[in-house]
Amino acid sequence: MTQQILIAVLVLGVIGAFFAVVLYFVAQKFKVVEDPLIDEVAEVLPGANCGGCGKAGCRAFAEACVAQGNLDGLRCAPGGDAVAQKIAQLLGCAVEQGEPQVAVVRCHPANCGDKRRSNYDGLKSCAFQNTVYTGESGCPFGCLGCGDCVDACQFDAIHMDPATGTPVVDEDLCTACGACAKACPRRIIELRNKGKKNRRVFVSCVNREKGAVAMKSCANACIGCGKCAKVCPMEAITISDNLSYIDFTKCIACRKCVTECPTHAIVDVNFPSPAVKPAPKPETPTAAEAAK
């Protein structure tokens, strides 16, 4: 009996030792040298793999950080400054403090429902609908309402408003990763600075058509009249291709442009009292055209 146990132990021991030696050499032969720093950086990242940084995922971002040795041009939007600081510590480099940002939908939610000119009956995808025609509103620049941005969001921070058919961003959940902005085939969504107390002013329209044409599809379209640019004390507003754009790095949120805009295309959010009464329909479109 003892002998049998002994033989078994010996045989197994020899086999074990043999394979241990084989495995040792195999491991040496196929060793992949990887910087342990990559693991540490990856550990710090949110791990949502949202792709907002432009890399394939969080691990790829960590690899890029370590390879580069600093954070120039690399930013994890969901992690924000806190994560940037931690990575900078690990890499031993400095990091610039970035202004917190948020996704902003630049298409007016009001007045779209009653302006519907057609009924889209195809694949529920903005990217596809964009190749078929202008969309239900008739505005070739407006929101198509199929929710590609909602599908793209990894943080559940953007939802379709069933009343208006346009997406609404949840500011608390939005990490400004930019996935929605990339998913939107019409580039309606933009990342803008959150602003002090979350107060922001922006042009809620991306229509580049001439004023009269733009007004036909939407009463709140930017007609490029330039009134806003004239009143802006900071020269933050530029007009190109019949469209006004407010540079958020220059804007001080004085709201002069909001009251000036004849079509109410300029929107202010999170201010205590509205600068203008929410009267979505402009009085006379012709006045707006004349201003042009």
Partner: peptide, 9 residues
């Protein structure tokens, strides 16, 4: 008249 339906072929 109804709204026209639009879809791909």
């Amino acid at each position: 008249m109804n709204l026209l339906n639009i879809s791909g072929s």
